[in-house]
Design a protein around this nucleic acid. Structure first.
Lengths: 180, 180
DNA sequence: TGGCAGGAGTAGACAACGTCTACGATCTCC
DNA sequence: GGAGATCGTAGACGTTGTCTACTCCTGCCA
């Protein structure tokens, strides 16, 4: 499993074959089967570790941050975007549809605590607006979409910007208002 | 190629093996190689057909629609979301990172006309605001993120909503203002 | 202390896949 | 009517995920 995490960070999500992971771990190709009944389950477990890592990064970033909810969302977005570029292979793995769909293993639920945090921040910032789940959902989708479309080059090509930061700012401002 | 399009619509993007496409087309597994040097190039071509289909649907939907730019964006978002759910396999294929990245074949560019349309609509609606490319980029990312996260179940789980429409509305309103 | 059940790893088989190569058919144009 | 190009076939090769038999090793209980 640790071998899988190292591998996805070093070689990207496309290199994560079951046999290559076993090779890196120094065991035979049948060994992982004792612990993970199928390849997808192994990948799901690795992806879950990725979600845990992301949540930990967000937590440490928000630990000693100002209390203003908008500032905290900006921080969160920065961590999200940095994670997606620095841990690109892991990010790709985490949001592979075939993992999330065929799962039923609750991989989806792994991102819910982070979403709950976002809901709280939105509710704190705009208590009397639309339901905070809706605003937070749209906000999350905006951040995710920017990161994803930016990461594979569609948004850089479309906007000509040097970095995704203006887009993240635009998303946050659109959903949470401007600086106060 | 037509066999590939039929296959992805019937069985999803995971079923698109080169040999299965050839089987459906009634030819041997080596035959596609005469026309597409590699499997990825065949998939890219199929994905390009998907982008063309999406653009055509948007065009017909906007053909006899009111001139109000916000209403047109709402229409565009609806077509985008409907395409993603009705042609789920094709949509997954169109935004597979390994196609867009390893390409250099200009698959990315295929979505640029649609983006240009969005830029125009944004510029028309809010002529004196932030650069229209930035707003349009954030808007596109928001729509794409909603559709994607909705499609694989994260957003339904997070928000508890029955459909993605409120989220799409929230994204559009956030970036283009409310109804007038 | 001896025997033994169960977990963990190995090695090999199998079908399916993408790629490559040699070969055959068919069609066009000089 | 034959030459050349285009297209499809058939088989090989290496790799992958899964499955099955076999072998250790470890800890427990009589």
């Amino acid at each position: 499993m640790r071998a899988g995490i190292d591998l996805v960070r070093a070689e990207g999500s496309a290199a994560l074959s079951l046999r290559e992971i076993a090779r890196r771990a120094g065991v035979s190709h049948g060994a992982p089967r004792r612990h993970f009944p199928t390849h997808l389950q192994l990948l799901s477990t690795i992806a879950r570790a990725g979600f845990a890592d992301l949540a930990a990064r967000v937590a440490t970033a928000l630990a000693d941050a100002p209390a203003d909810p908008r500032a905290r969302v900006v921080l969160l977005a920065g961590v999200y975007a940095r994670f997606a570029t620095e841990e690109r292979g892991m990010f790709e793995l985490m949001f592979r549809h075939d993992l999330l769909e065929s799962g039923h293993l609750g991989l989806r639920g792994t991102s819910m605590p982070l979403f709950g945090l976002l809901v709280d921040l939105v509710a704190e910032a705009k208590p009397a607006d639309a339901p905070p789940e809706v605003t937070a959902g749209a906000l999350w989708a905006g951040l995710h979409g920017v990161v994803q479309l930016w990461n594979w080059g569609s948004l850089p090509l479309a906007t000509g910007l040097p970095g995704p930061e203006p887009l993240l700012e635009a998303v946050i401002t659109a959903h949470m208002g401007g600086v106060r």
